[in-house]
């Protein structure tokens, strides 16, 4: 699980161009949207595509997305359970 969390943090930094962040700057339970990392709706779309492309998970229900993208911790748990690749 730790390896997946690290991988996710690296992907988030790279895909969302968070130039000023390093893996160490993102805590497992940091809120991704709003006050935490400050991600927005465009980032949410980027993350949805990332889930599909890298882990074979298709998120179609917006409410499900809201729950999944709370933090790296929650996201990693969800991926571990639902990944198809």
């Amino acid at each position: 699980m730790d390896a997946l969390k690290k991988e996710l943090k690296e992907s988030i930094i790279e895909q969302l161009n968070l130039e000023d962040f390093t893996v160490e700057d993102i805590a497992d339970d940091d809120t991704l949207f709003g006050d935490g990392l400050g991600l927005d709706s465009i980032d949410a779309l980027e993350l949805i595509v990332m889930l599909d492309k890298d882990y074979g998970i298709k998120l179609t229900d917006p409410n499900e997305g809201k729950a999944v993208f709370v933090s790296v911790e929650v996201l990693a748990t969800y991926i571990a359970k639902h990944r198809t690749k």
Partner: peptide
């Protein structure tokens, strides 16, 4: 690269 799939919005916008 992605065979017309997995297109992210940022670079398009």
């Amino acid at each position: 690269d992605n065979d017309e799939e997995f297109l992210t919005p940022t670079s398009f916008i």
